[in-house]
Simulated assay, not measured.
Amino acid sequence: MTSMTFQAASPFFMRPPRGARWAAAAFLRLIDAFDFSRKSGAVQRDSRAEEAESVREMARSIEASDPGFAADLYAAANRHETQG
């Protein structure tokens, strides 16, 4: 016969440390203060055609050294451009 002993933590140890909520809120405010990309709108996403063209450009650059991978990149670019 086998017996197993389980130990459960008391509720005292399961509470977050004192000041943890305040520290987390302060940290999130600090991150928001330094997140310039969201505020300025500087991040601009390329269109699907532009993204596909950049992948094709990469494929052309490695086509001579690794034609198989370049073919995979061309296929991925075509699939990315047509799906939307």
Score class of each variant (00 low, 15 high):
T2D: 13
T2K: 00
S3G: 12
S3W: 12
S3N: 14
S3I: 13
S3Y: 12
M4E: 15
F6Q: 15
F6M: 15
Q7L: 15
Q7P: 03
Q7E: 13
Q7V: 14
A8R: 14
A8V: 14
A9K: 11
A9P: 09
A9S: 13
S10K: 12
P11I: 05
P11V: 07
P11L: 06
F12G: 07
F12I: 14
F12D: 15
F13R: 12
R15Q: 02
R15M: 11
R15V: 05
P16H: 03
P16A: 09
P17C: 11
P17K: 15
P17D: 11
G19R: 02
R21I: 14
R21Y: 05
W22C: 12
A24C: 05
A24H: 10
A25H: 07
A26E: 09
F27C: 04
L28V: 09
L28P: 07
R29Q: 12
R29T: 13
R29Y: 15
R29P: 00
R29V: 15
L30D: 07
L30N: 02
L30Q: 03
I31T: 05
D32N: 12
D32T: 05
D32C: 10
A33H: 00
F34L: 02
F34V: 04
F34C: 08
F34Y: 06
D35L: 11
D35N: 13
D35V: 01
F36A: 09
S37N: 14
S37L: 09
R38Q: 11
S40Y: 02
S40I: 02
S40Q: 04
G41F: 06
A42D: 04
V43E: 09
Q44H: 09
R45V: 08
R45H: 14
R45S: 11
D46V: 10
D46I: 00
S47V: 01
S47N: 07
R48P: 03
R48A: 07
R48C: 05
A49Q: 01
A49L: 01
A49S: 05
A49E: 10
E50L: 04
E50H: 04
E51Y: 08
E51R: 11
E51F: 05
E51H: 06
A52I: 08
A52R: 06
E53L: 03
S54K: 11
S54R: 12
V55Q: 07
V55R: 03
V55S: 01
R56V: 02
R56H: 03
R56I: 00
E57W: 13
M58W: 09
M58L: 12
M58T: 10
M58I: 12
M58H: 05
R60F: 08
R60S: 01
S61L: 06
I62A: 00
E63T: 05
A64G: 09
S65Q: 14
S65R: 11
D66N: 10
D66R: 01
P67W: 08
P67S: 01
G68Q: 08
F69L: 15
A70G: 00
A70F: 02
A71D: 13
A71L: 06
D72A: 09
D72S: 14
D72P: 07
L73F: 04
L73E: 03
Y74I: 03
Y74C: 00
A75R: 05
A75Y: 08
A75Q: 10
A77T: 03
N78A: 13
N78D: 13
N78G: 11
R79K: 10
R79H: 10
H80A: 01
E81W: 05
Q83G: 10
Q83V: 04
G84F: 01
